[in-house]
Each structure stands twice: as C-alpha cells, then as structure tokens.
C-alpha cells in the first residue's frame, strides 16, 4: 500500500495538484497499480546485464534545415513581451 504522504510528495514533484476530495480514490487506484507492477519481483533477472542494450541513434549535421519565425514561435504563448515569453518573476528583490 502506497502511503498518502508519498502520493503528496509525488504530486509536488510532478507539479500536479490532486484535489483533497479525490485523494482517497486516487490513492486506492495508485496502490492497486503499484501492487500489480510488483509482479516483476518474481522475474529472475540475474542473467541480464545492465548495459547490454545498444541504441542506435541517427544524428544529422548540426546545420539549419528549417527555420521558424520568432512571431510564429511565440504565437501559442499566453503572455509575450517584445517577442519574448513573459513569466512570473523568479528572483526575489531582497
């Protein structure tokens, strides 16, 4: 069973708020899922190495292939000043 304080910690890390009246049902579903996932404890993985997986990524040359206009880039933002994204102040004056 996952504890309520753990869920609250995870919600903070995720930058998500769970409404007070929904915490209990959330906790119930969350715990059931985690319990199911614990099925993996039964799998014997001693033969499997950590870094066996080789992922082949294809990288392209670091050259411009397409250009977006600044006006287009900022058009989906709710708050724009002089073509910059405007955000709440993050540095205290003190």
């Amino acid at each position: 069973m996952v504890e309520k304080k753990e869920v609250l910690k995870i919600s903070k890390l995720s930058r998500l708020l769970i409404e007070e009246n929904k915490i209990d049902s959330f906790l119930k579903n969350f715990s059931e899922i985690i319990e199911y996932i614990n099925l993996l404890d039964q799998a014997d993985t001693t033969e499997i190495g950590k870094d066996e997986e080789i992922v082949e990524y294809s990288f392209r040359d670091d050259s411009e292939i397409e250009k977006l206009e600044v006006e287009d880039v900022v058009k989906n933002s709710a708050k724009v000043e002089n073509n910059f994204f405007a955000v709440t102040k993050v540095i205290d004056e003190e």
Binding site: S14, N29, F30, I34
Partner: peptide
C-alpha cells in the same frame, strides 16, 4: 495518474 506513476 501516469505522470505521477512515472515520477514515482
């Protein structure tokens, strides 16, 4: 739920 499962 999924974001939080992943974060967990």
């Amino acid at each position: 739920r999924r974001i939080m499962l992943g974060t967990y």
